[in-house]
Lab assay of single mutants.
Amino acid sequence: MIINNLKLIREKKKISQSELAALLEVSRQTINGIEKNKYNASLQLALKIAYYLNTPLEDIFQWQ
């Protein structure tokens, strides 16, 4: 199981879903879906999320 901390980290950094989506060149709905565990981010997208949030990938998506 993967624990998804994207919403928590994004909100801590005061970045909206729309802002993050624009940086990543995806839709806001994609970010929303990832945060609600409706969609799994591809490895490429997960790495981009970590880069733009300046946060280690394993802090955003944790295996349990």
Rank of each mutant, 00 (worst) to 15 (best):
Y51P: 00
K13V: 08
V26T: 06
L8K: 15
N54F: 05
E25F: 08
Q62S: 11
N37C: 11
I2P: 07
Q17G: 03
L20A: 00
W63F: 10
L43Q: 08
V26I: 10
N40R: 15
Q44I: 10
I15N: 00
P56W: 05
I15K: 04
L47T: 12
Q62D: 07
I9T: 05
R28G: 05
I60H: 01
R10L: 07
Q64R: 11
N32K: 14
L47R: 13
F61I: 03
K13S: 09
S16E: 04
Y39W: 12
L43A: 07
K12P: 01
I9C: 08
L23P: 00
K14S: 11
E35F: 03
D59M: 10
Q17N: 02
E19D: 11
M1C: 14
E35M: 03
A41R: 01
Q17V: 13
K36G: 10
L23Y: 14
I34C: 03
I34P: 01
P56H: 06
K13R: 13
I31M: 04
R10S: 03
E25P: 05
N40W: 10
N4V: 06
K13Y: 07
E25Y: 07
L53Y: 02
T30W: 11
L6F: 00
F61P: 01
Q17I: 13
Y52Q: 07
E35A: 02
V26F: 02
L8V: 15
I3C: 14
K13Q: 12
T30A: 08
I3K: 14
S42D: 10
T55D: 02
N5G: 04
S16F: 07
S42Y: 04
N40E: 12
I3G: 10
R28T: 15
D59H: 11
I49R: 00
M1T: 11
S18L: 10
L20N: 00
K13G: 05
Q17C: 03
R10P: 02
E11S: 08
I9K: 02
Q64M: 09
S16K: 09
A22W: 06
A41V: 15
Q62C: 10
E19V: 09
Y52N: 04
I49Q: 00
Q62V: 13
A41K: 02
N4A: 03
L6D: 03
K38Y: 14
K12G: 12
S18T: 12
L57T: 03
S27P: 14
A21N: 02
F61Q: 01
V26H: 02
P56Y: 04
S27E: 06
K38N: 09
S27H: 06
F61W: 09
G33C: 15
E19T: 11
A41L: 15
Y39V: 15
R28Q: 14
S18M: 12
K48E: 05
S27L: 03
K13A: 13
A50I: 03
I15G: 01
A22K: 13
I2L: 12
I34E: 01
K38C: 13
R28Y: 09
I49E: 00
M1Q: 10
I15A: 01
N5I: 08
T55H: 06
Y39D: 06
D59I: 09
L53N: 00
I15V: 10
S18N: 13
E58S: 12
R28M: 13
A22P: 00
N5M: 06
L47I: 12
I3E: 08
S42Q: 05
T55P: 01
I2D: 04
E58L: 09
E19S: 11
K14C: 11
K38Q: 14
E25T: 08
S16R: 06
P56M: 05
I60F: 03
L57I: 11
L23F: 14
L23K: 12
N32A: 15
M1R: 10
Q44K: 14
Y52R: 04
Y51L: 10
L6W: 01
E58Y: 13
Y51I: 08
Q62E: 09
A46W: 13
D59Q: 13
Q62G: 12
N32P: 01
N4H: 04
L43H: 10
E11V: 10
R28S: 11
A22F: 10
S16D: 04
E58V: 09
L53F: 07
L57D: 01
M1V: 12
Q64W: 07
Y51T: 08
L23I: 11
I3N: 09
F61E: 01
A21S: 06
I15M: 14
L24P: 00
A41Q: 03
L6K: 01
L24M: 07
L47N: 09
S42I: 04
F61H: 01
A21M: 02
K12A: 15
Q62M: 11
N54R: 09
K36V: 09
L8Y: 10
Q17R: 08
Q44E: 15
S16A: 06
I49H: 00
I9D: 01
N4F: 06
T30F: 13
L23C: 10
E25I: 05
I9G: 02
S16G: 07
E58T: 11
L47Q: 13
A22I: 12
N32E: 15
N37P: 01
A21T: 02
N37R: 08
S18P: 06
E11D: 08
Q64E: 14
I15C: 06
L45P: 00
A22Y: 10
K13M: 14
L23A: 15
T55R: 03
W63T: 06
I31C: 04
L53C: 02
I34R: 00
L8H: 14
N54W: 06
E58R: 11
N37D: 07
E58N: 12
Q44M: 10
R10A: 04
T30R: 10
L24F: 01
K38E: 14
I15W: 05
F61C: 04
P56F: 06
L6S: 01
R10F: 06
L24D: 00
A21C: 04
M1Y: 14
I60D: 01
L53I: 03
N4E: 03
N5K: 06
L53A: 02
L23Q: 10
S18I: 11
P56A: 09
V26M: 04
I49M: 06
I3Q: 09
A46L: 14
L8Q: 15
S18Q: 13
L57K: 02
E25C: 15
E19F: 08
I34K: 01
K38P: 05
Q17F: 03
I15H: 03
I49C: 03
I49V: 05
I60V: 07
K36L: 13
L6N: 02
K12T: 11
A50W: 03
E25M: 13
L24H: 00
K12Q: 15
N37F: 07
I49T: 02
A22M: 12
I49N: 00
T55Y: 05
A46S: 07
N54M: 09
K14Y: 06
F61T: 01
L23W: 14
W63K: 06
K7I: 06
E19I: 07
I3L: 14
S27V: 04
L45S: 01
N37W: 08
K7R: 14
A21R: 02
L8W: 07
L53V: 03
T30E: 08
K38V: 13
K48G: 06
I2A: 08
K13P: 01
L6G: 02
N40K: 15
Q44A: 14
I60Y: 01
R10T: 03
L45Q: 05
I31D: 01
I49F: 04
A41I: 15
L57S: 03
K12E: 13
I34F: 03
K38M: 13
E35Q: 02
E11G: 05
K48A: 08
W63E: 05
Y39G: 07
N5D: 04
P56D: 08
R10Q: 03
Q62K: 11
I34V: 05
V26K: 01
I15P: 01
T30Y: 15
A21V: 04
L57H: 02
A21E: 02
E25V: 07
N4P: 04
Q44N: 12
E25K: 15
Q29C: 12
L45C: 05
I3A: 10
K36P: 01
K48I: 04
V26Q: 02
K7M: 08
A22D: 12
L20I: 04
L57Q: 02
G33V: 07
I2T: 10
L8G: 11
Q64V: 13
K48D: 05
D59L: 11
Q29T: 12
K48S: 07
S42V: 05
T55C: 07
N40Y: 12
I2H: 08
S42G: 11
I60K: 01
S16W: 05
D59P: 02
K38G: 07
M1L: 13
S18K: 13
Q29G: 11
S16P: 05
E35W: 03
T30G: 02
K36I: 10
Y52L: 12
E35T: 03
S42M: 04
Y52E: 06
A41P: 15
L53H: 02
A50L: 03
K36A: 13
L20R: 00
D59V: 09
A46D: 00
S27M: 03
R28P: 15
P56I: 04
L24W: 01
N5E: 03
L53G: 00
N5R: 08
L24Y: 00
L47G: 07
Q17P: 04
A46N: 03
Q44Y: 12
A50N: 01
L45H: 02
L20M: 05
Y52V: 15
T55F: 04
